[in-house]
Amino acid sequence: MSENSKIQKGRGTLNNIDSRFNEFQRTVIDDGWFVEELPPATTEISIENARSIISRNTSPDVPFEQSVNAYRGCEHGCIYCYARPSHAYLGLSPGIDFETKLTIKPNAAELLREELMAKNYRCSTLSLGANTDPYQPIERHYSLTREVLEVMIEFSHPVNIVTKSSLIERDIDLLKQLAEKQLVHVHLSITTLDKTLARKLEPRTSSPQRRLQTIETLKANGIPVSVLLAPVIPVLTDIELENIIDASAQSGAENIDYIFVRLPREVSPLFNDWLHTHYPDKAEHVMNRIKDSRNGKTNDPRFGYRLEGQGLYAEMIKKRFEVAIKKYPLNKSPAVLRTDLFHKPTKQMSLF
Protein backbone atom coordinates (compact mmCIF):
# COMPACT_ATOMS: atom_id res chain seq x y z
CA MET A 1 0.00 0.00 0.00
CA SER A 2 1.45 3.39 -0.97
CA GLU A 3 2.00 6.15 1.56
CA ASN A 4 -0.72 8.29 -0.05
CA SER A 5 -3.25 5.47 0.12
CA LYS A 6 -2.79 5.43 3.91
CA ILE A 7 -3.93 9.04 4.21
CA GLN A 8 -7.43 10.41 3.78
CA LYS A 9 -8.58 13.85 4.85
CA GLY A 10 -10.72 13.68 7.98
CA ARG A 11 -9.60 10.18 9.00
CA GLY A 12 -7.05 9.19 11.60
CA THR A 13 -6.15 5.94 9.88
CA LEU A 14 -7.15 3.79 6.93
CA ASN A 15 -5.56 0.76 8.56
CA ASN A 16 -8.21 -1.95 8.89
CA ILE A 17 -6.30 -4.00 11.45
CA ASP A 18 -8.23 -7.12 12.44
CA SER A 19 -10.08 -7.57 15.70
CA ARG A 20 -7.96 -9.65 18.07
CA PHE A 21 -10.95 -11.97 18.46
CA ASN A 22 -11.16 -12.82 14.76
CA GLU A 23 -10.49 -16.44 13.88
CA PHE A 24 -8.13 -15.37 11.10
CA GLN A 25 -5.70 -12.44 11.03
CA ARG A 26 -4.84 -10.72 7.74
CA THR A 27 -1.65 -8.86 6.87
CA VAL A 28 -1.36 -6.41 3.97
CA ILE A 29 1.90 -6.78 2.05
CA ASP A 30 3.07 -4.33 -0.62
CA ASP A 31 4.73 -6.44 -3.32
CA GLY A 32 5.48 -3.42 -5.48
CA TRP A 33 3.29 -4.53 -8.38
CA PHE A 34 0.37 -2.18 -7.83
CA VAL A 35 -0.84 0.72 -5.73
CA GLU A 36 -4.08 0.10 -3.91
CA GLU A 37 -6.26 3.20 -3.99
CA LEU A 38 -8.92 2.92 -1.33
CA PRO A 39 -12.38 4.49 -1.75
CA PRO A 40 -13.37 7.29 0.64
CA ALA A 41 -14.19 5.93 4.08
CA THR A 42 -17.79 6.86 4.83
CA THR A 43 -19.52 6.82 8.21
CA GLU A 44 -22.04 4.03 8.83
CA ILE A 45 -24.53 4.19 11.70
CA SER A 46 -26.11 1.17 13.39
CA ILE A 47 -28.64 1.16 16.21
CA GLU A 48 -28.28 -0.69 19.50
CA ASN A 49 -31.28 -1.13 21.74
CA ALA A 50 -29.23 -1.25 24.91
CA ARG A 51 -30.53 -2.97 28.04
CA SER A 52 -28.47 -0.85 30.44
CA ILE A 53 -26.58 2.43 30.13
CA ILE A 54 -24.55 3.09 33.30
CA SER A 55 -21.08 1.51 33.35
CA ARG A 56 -19.33 1.08 36.69
CA ASN A 57 -15.63 1.70 37.27
CA THR A 58 -13.35 0.57 40.11
CA SER A 59 -10.06 2.07 38.91
CA PRO A 60 -8.34 4.30 41.49
CA ASP A 61 -6.74 6.25 38.61
CA VAL A 62 -9.92 8.03 37.55
CA PRO A 63 -12.12 10.35 39.66
CA PHE A 64 -15.49 8.78 38.87
CA GLU A 65 -17.30 5.56 39.65
CA GLN A 66 -19.79 5.48 36.82
CA SER A 67 -20.16 6.68 33.26
CA VAL A 68 -22.61 6.83 30.38
CA ASN A 69 -21.71 6.27 26.72
CA ALA A 70 -24.51 6.88 24.23
CA TYR A 71 -22.22 5.98 21.32
CA ARG A 72 -19.81 3.21 20.38
CA GLY A 73 -16.88 4.26 18.22
CA CYS A 74 -15.87 7.87 17.65
CA GLU A 75 -15.80 9.85 14.43
CA HIS A 76 -13.14 12.20 15.77
CA GLY A 77 -10.56 9.67 14.60
CA CYS A 78 -7.86 10.41 17.21
CA ILE A 79 -5.14 7.93 16.31
CA TYR A 80 -3.95 7.56 19.92
CA CYS A 81 -7.42 6.86 21.39
CA TYR A 82 -7.22 4.23 24.14
CA ALA A 83 -10.85 3.26 23.42
CA ARG A 84 -10.11 1.87 19.95
CA PRO A 85 -9.59 -1.72 21.22
CA SER A 86 -13.18 -1.77 22.50
CA HIS A 87 -14.38 -2.10 18.89
CA ALA A 88 -12.78 -5.54 18.76
CA TYR A 89 -15.51 -6.81 21.10
CA LEU A 90 -17.99 -6.03 18.31
CA GLY A 91 -15.97 -8.03 15.77
CA LEU A 92 -14.88 -4.76 14.13
CA SER A 93 -11.49 -3.22 13.47
CA PRO A 94 -10.03 -0.87 16.08
CA GLY A 95 -8.63 0.95 13.04
CA ILE A 96 -10.83 2.59 10.44
CA ASP A 97 -13.95 0.78 11.67
CA PHE A 98 -13.67 2.55 15.04
CA GLU A 99 -14.11 5.94 13.38
CA THR A 100 -16.52 4.95 10.58
CA LYS A 101 -18.74 2.13 11.88
CA LEU A 102 -20.52 3.81 14.75
CA THR A 103 -23.32 2.61 17.00
CA ILE A 104 -25.92 4.83 18.62
CA LYS A 105 -28.09 4.02 21.62
CA PRO A 106 -31.30 6.00 20.97
CA ASN A 107 -32.83 4.84 24.25
CA ALA A 108 -29.88 6.11 26.33
CA ALA A 109 -31.83 8.84 28.14
CA GLU A 110 -34.80 6.54 28.75
CA LEU A 111 -32.57 3.83 30.21
CA LEU A 112 -30.72 6.34 32.34
CA ARG A 113 -33.97 7.63 33.79
CA GLU A 114 -35.02 4.07 34.67
CA GLU A 115 -31.69 3.25 36.32
CA LEU A 116 -31.69 6.45 38.37
CA MET A 117 -35.20 5.60 39.59
CA ALA A 118 -34.07 2.20 40.91
CA LYS A 119 -34.53 1.76 44.65
CA ASN A 120 -30.91 0.77 45.23
CA TYR A 121 -29.35 3.54 43.13
CA ARG A 122 -26.66 5.50 44.99
CA CYS A 123 -25.84 8.93 43.57
CA SER A 124 -22.28 9.66 42.50
CA THR A 125 -20.96 11.80 39.66
CA LEU A 126 -21.68 10.44 36.18
CA SER A 127 -18.96 10.89 33.57
CA LEU A 128 -19.71 11.61 29.91
CA GLY A 129 -16.75 11.04 27.61
CA ALA A 130 -15.06 8.21 29.47
CA ASN A 131 -14.91 5.99 26.37
CA THR A 132 -15.94 8.00 23.32
CA ASP A 133 -16.50 11.73 22.94
CA PRO A 134 -20.09 12.68 23.82
CA TYR A 135 -19.88 15.60 21.38
CA GLN A 136 -18.45 13.80 18.37
CA PRO A 137 -19.87 15.00 15.00
CA ILE A 138 -22.91 12.67 14.92
CA GLU A 139 -24.16 14.22 18.17
CA ARG A 140 -25.08 17.26 16.10
CA HIS A 141 -27.81 15.14 14.46
CA TYR A 142 -28.83 12.64 17.17
CA SER A 143 -28.55 14.87 20.28
CA LEU A 144 -28.25 11.88 22.62
CA THR A 145 -25.86 13.73 24.92
CA ARG A 146 -28.30 16.63 25.17
CA GLU A 147 -31.06 14.20 26.15
CA VAL A 148 -28.81 12.75 28.87
CA LEU A 149 -28.15 16.24 30.23
CA GLU A 150 -31.90 16.86 30.39
CA VAL A 151 -32.19 13.78 32.61
CA MET A 152 -29.38 15.13 34.80
CA ILE A 153 -31.39 18.32 35.30
CA GLU A 154 -34.56 16.36 36.02
CA PHE A 155 -32.84 14.42 38.83
CA SER A 156 -30.44 17.18 39.97
CA HIS A 157 -27.64 14.71 39.30
CA PRO A 158 -23.93 15.71 39.09
CA VAL A 159 -22.18 15.16 35.77
CA ASN A 160 -18.60 15.40 34.59
CA ILE A 161 -17.96 15.97 30.85
CA VAL A 162 -14.76 15.37 28.86
CA THR A 163 -14.68 16.49 25.22
CA LYS A 164 -12.51 17.80 22.39
CA SER A 165 -15.45 19.47 20.66
CA SER A 166 -16.83 23.00 20.66
CA LEU A 167 -20.24 21.49 19.93
CA ILE A 168 -20.70 21.53 23.70
CA GLU A 169 -21.52 25.25 23.34
CA ARG A 170 -24.87 24.19 21.86
CA ASP A 171 -25.93 22.95 25.31
CA ILE A 172 -24.92 26.01 27.31
CA ASP A 173 -28.57 26.53 28.29
CA LEU A 174 -28.61 23.13 30.03
CA LEU A 175 -25.10 23.43 31.43
CA LYS A 176 -25.95 26.77 33.04
CA GLN A 177 -28.88 25.18 34.87
CA LEU A 178 -26.60 22.45 36.21
CA ALA A 179 -23.81 24.90 37.06
CA GLU A 180 -26.16 27.02 39.16
CA LYS A 181 -26.57 24.01 41.47
CA GLN A 182 -22.90 22.97 41.34
CA LEU A 183 -23.79 19.87 39.33
CA VAL A 184 -21.45 20.04 36.32
CA HIS A 185 -17.78 20.31 35.44
CA VAL A 186 -16.44 20.40 31.88
CA HIS A 187 -12.97 19.25 30.83
CA LEU A 188 -11.72 20.40 27.42
CA SER A 189 -9.02 18.03 26.20
CA ILE A 190 -6.13 19.71 24.35
CA THR A 191 -3.26 17.74 22.84
CA THR A 192 -1.46 20.36 20.75
CA LEU A 193 -1.75 23.99 19.66
CA ASP A 194 -0.29 23.15 16.24
CA LYS A 195 -3.22 23.12 13.80
CA THR A 196 -1.31 21.11 11.19
CA LEU A 197 -0.38 18.41 13.69
CA ALA A 198 -3.90 18.40 15.14
CA ARG A 199 -5.48 17.75 11.72
CA LYS A 200 -3.34 14.63 11.39
CA LEU A 201 -3.48 13.49 15.01
CA GLU A 202 -7.18 14.10 15.77
CA PRO A 203 -8.72 14.98 12.37
CA ARG A 204 -12.39 15.60 13.16
CA THR A 205 -12.06 17.38 16.47
CA SER A 206 -12.47 21.14 16.89
CA SER A 207 -9.24 23.03 16.22
CA PRO A 208 -7.08 23.80 19.27
CA GLN A 209 -7.79 27.52 18.91
CA ARG A 210 -11.53 26.86 18.73
CA ARG A 211 -11.33 24.83 21.93
CA LEU A 212 -9.62 27.73 23.69
CA GLN A 213 -12.53 29.93 22.60
CA THR A 214 -14.92 27.37 24.07
CA ILE A 215 -13.13 27.60 27.42
CA GLU A 216 -13.70 31.36 27.37
CA THR A 217 -17.36 30.93 26.42
CA LEU A 218 -18.09 28.38 29.13
CA LYS A 219 -16.27 30.46 31.72
CA ALA A 220 -18.24 33.56 30.73
CA ASN A 221 -21.48 31.63 31.28
CA GLY A 222 -20.53 30.53 34.78
CA ILE A 223 -19.80 26.92 33.80
CA PRO A 224 -16.74 25.43 35.57
CA VAL A 225 -14.18 24.37 32.97
CA SER A 226 -10.79 22.69 33.20
CA VAL A 227 -8.23 21.52 30.67
CA LEU A 228 -6.83 18.05 30.25
CA LEU A 229 -3.53 17.85 28.36
CA ALA A 230 -4.21 14.47 26.84
CA PRO A 231 -2.19 12.78 25.79
CA VAL A 232 1.31 14.19 26.20
CA ILE A 233 3.27 12.54 23.37
CA PRO A 234 7.07 12.46 23.55
CA VAL A 235 8.89 14.35 20.77
CA LEU A 236 5.61 15.31 19.05
CA THR A 237 3.71 17.36 21.64
CA ASP A 238 5.70 17.40 24.88
CA ILE A 239 7.57 20.51 23.78
CA GLU A 240 4.25 22.39 23.92
CA LEU A 241 3.47 21.56 27.55
CA GLU A 242 4.15 25.03 28.96
CA ASN A 243 2.51 26.81 26.01
CA ILE A 244 -0.70 24.79 26.36
CA ILE A 245 -0.82 25.49 30.08
CA ASP A 246 -0.30 29.21 29.44
CA ALA A 247 -2.97 29.40 26.72
CA SER A 248 -5.44 27.40 28.83
CA ALA A 249 -4.93 29.56 31.90
CA GLN A 250 -5.28 32.75 29.86
CA SER A 251 -8.55 31.41 28.43
CA GLY A 252 -10.02 30.87 31.88
CA ALA A 253 -9.37 27.24 32.81
CA GLU A 254 -9.70 26.68 36.55
CA ASN A 255 -7.76 23.44 36.71
CA ILE A 256 -5.27 21.74 34.41
CA ASP A 257 -4.03 18.16 34.45
CA TYR A 258 -2.27 15.85 32.00
CA ILE A 259 -2.13 12.23 30.88
CA PHE A 260 1.00 10.64 29.43
CA VAL A 261 0.30 8.74 26.22
CA ARG A 262 -0.44 5.03 26.50
CA LEU A 263 -0.99 2.65 23.61
CA PRO A 264 -3.00 -0.41 24.70
CA ARG A 265 -3.46 -3.46 22.48
CA GLU A 266 -4.18 -2.57 18.83
CA VAL A 267 -3.52 1.14 19.40
CA SER A 268 0.23 0.47 19.48
CA PRO A 269 0.61 -0.86 15.89
CA LEU A 270 -1.93 1.70 14.62
CA PHE A 271 -0.03 4.58 16.18
CA ASN A 272 3.30 3.21 14.96
CA ASP A 273 1.90 2.94 11.42
CA TRP A 274 0.57 6.52 11.67
CA LEU A 275 3.98 7.78 12.79
CA HIS A 276 5.78 6.14 9.88
CA THR A 277 3.21 7.60 7.48
CA HIS A 278 3.22 11.20 8.76
CA TYR A 279 6.49 11.59 10.69
CA PRO A 280 8.85 8.83 9.52
CA ASP A 281 11.95 10.72 10.70
CA LYS A 282 10.60 10.87 14.27
CA ALA A 283 8.82 7.52 14.46
CA GLU A 284 11.49 5.46 16.19
CA HIS A 285 12.36 8.28 18.55
CA VAL A 286 8.74 8.69 19.65
CA MET A 287 8.17 4.98 20.19
CA ASN A 288 11.42 4.54 22.11
CA ARG A 289 10.56 7.42 24.44
CA ILE A 290 7.13 5.91 25.09
CA LYS A 291 8.71 2.55 25.89
CA ASP A 292 11.20 4.28 28.20
CA SER A 293 8.23 5.50 30.20
CA ARG A 294 6.16 2.32 30.03
CA ASN A 295 8.53 -0.25 31.51
CA GLY A 296 9.87 -1.21 28.07
CA LYS A 297 6.42 -1.51 26.51
CA THR A 298 3.97 0.88 24.87
CA ASN A 299 1.38 0.44 27.63
CA ASP A 300 1.57 -0.26 31.33
CA PRO A 301 -1.92 -1.13 32.64
CA ARG A 302 -0.96 -1.07 36.31
CA PHE A 303 -2.93 1.29 38.52
CA GLY A 304 -0.82 4.26 39.55
CA TYR A 305 1.30 4.17 36.39
CA ARG A 306 -1.25 4.23 33.56
CA LEU A 307 -1.73 8.00 33.44
CA GLU A 308 1.73 9.36 34.28
CA GLY A 309 4.19 6.66 33.28
CA GLN A 310 7.44 6.01 35.09
CA GLY A 311 11.16 6.43 34.57
CA LEU A 312 13.36 9.48 33.99
CA TYR A 313 11.48 10.83 30.98
CA ALA A 314 8.05 10.57 32.60
CA GLU A 315 9.43 12.14 35.77
CA MET A 316 10.82 15.04 33.74
CA ILE A 317 7.36 15.67 32.22
CA LYS A 318 5.82 15.60 35.69
CA LYS A 319 8.35 18.12 37.06
CA ARG A 320 7.86 20.44 34.10
CA PHE A 321 4.11 20.31 34.60
CA GLU A 322 4.36 21.07 38.32
CA VAL A 323 6.64 24.05 37.70
CA ALA A 324 4.47 25.42 34.88
CA ILE A 325 1.15 25.44 36.76
CA LYS A 326 2.70 27.31 39.71
CA LYS A 327 2.76 30.44 37.55
CA TYR A 328 -1.03 30.62 37.55
CA PRO A 329 -3.86 30.39 40.11
CA LEU A 330 -4.64 26.82 39.04
CA ASN A 331 -5.60 23.61 40.82
CA LYS A 332 -6.13 25.47 44.09
CA SER A 333 -9.49 23.92 44.91
CA PRO A 334 -10.52 20.73 43.08
CA ALA A 335 -14.07 20.92 41.79
CA VAL A 336 -16.46 19.00 44.04
CA LEU A 337 -19.91 18.41 42.60
CA ARG A 338 -22.94 18.13 44.85
CA THR A 339 -24.71 14.82 45.34
CA ASP A 340 -27.02 15.92 48.13
CA LEU A 341 -29.46 17.56 45.70
CA PHE A 342 -30.22 14.30 43.93
CA HIS A 343 -33.89 13.39 43.97
CA LYS A 344 -36.22 11.07 42.09
CA PRO A 345 -39.06 12.91 40.36
CA THR A 346 -42.52 11.99 41.57
CA LYS A 347 -44.54 10.20 38.95
CA GLN A 348 -47.89 11.92 38.43
CA MET A 349 -50.73 9.42 38.50
CA SER A 350 -53.52 9.67 35.98
CA LEU A 351 -56.99 10.62 37.29
CA PHE A 352 -58.71 8.61 34.59
Rank of each mutant, 00 (worst) to 15 (best):
Q8R: 14
G12H: 08
T13R: 05
L14K: 10
R26A: 15
T27I: 15
I29T: 14
G32L: 14
E37H: 15
P39V: 12
A41H: 08
T43F: 02
I45A: 02
I47N: 11
A50E: 08
S52M: 08
R56K: 10
V62P: 00
P63D: 00
E65G: 11
Q66I: 00
Q66E: 05
S67N: 04
R72T: 02
C74E: 04
E75T: 12
G77L: 07
C81Q: 08
A88E: 15
Y89S: 11
L90H: 13
T103L: 14
N107I: 07
A108S: 15
A108K: 10
A108E: 11
R113P: 07
M117E: 11
A118E: 14
R122G: 00
R122A: 00
R122N: 00
Y135K: 02
Y135F: 09
I138H: 08
H141A: 13
H141E: 15
R146K: 15
L149D: 02
S156F: 03
V162G: 01
T163L: 05
K164D: 11
S166D: 14
I168N: 09
I168H: 09
I168R: 10
A179L: 07
E180Q: 14
L183W: 09
L183G: 04
T191K: 02
T191H: 03
T191A: 14
L193I: 10
R199P: 02
K200D: 07
K200E: 13
L201T: 12
S206D: 09
S207L: 15
S207Y: 14
P208E: 11
R210S: 13
L212K: 06
Q213K: 13
T214F: 03
E216N: 11
A220Q: 15
N221F: 06
L229P: 01
A230G: 01
V232G: 03
V232Q: 01
V232A: 04
I233W: 01
P234M: 05
E240N: 04
I244P: 01
D246V: 00
D246A: 10
S251E: 10
A253D: 03
N255F: 07
D257E: 14
Y258A: 09
I259S: 08
V261I: 15
R262V: 08
P264T: 10
V267M: 06
N272G: 00
Y279F: 15
D281S: 15
K282G: 04
A283Y: 05
E284S: 14
N288W: 02
G296T: 05
P301L: 09
Y305I: 02
L307F: 11
E308Q: 12
E308K: 06
G309N: 04
G309Y: 02
G309F: 02
G309Q: 03
L312Y: 04
K319T: 12
F321N: 03
A324I: 01
K332N: 15
L337F: 09
L341G: 02
F342T: 04
K344M: 01
P345R: 07
Q348M: 04
Q348V: 13
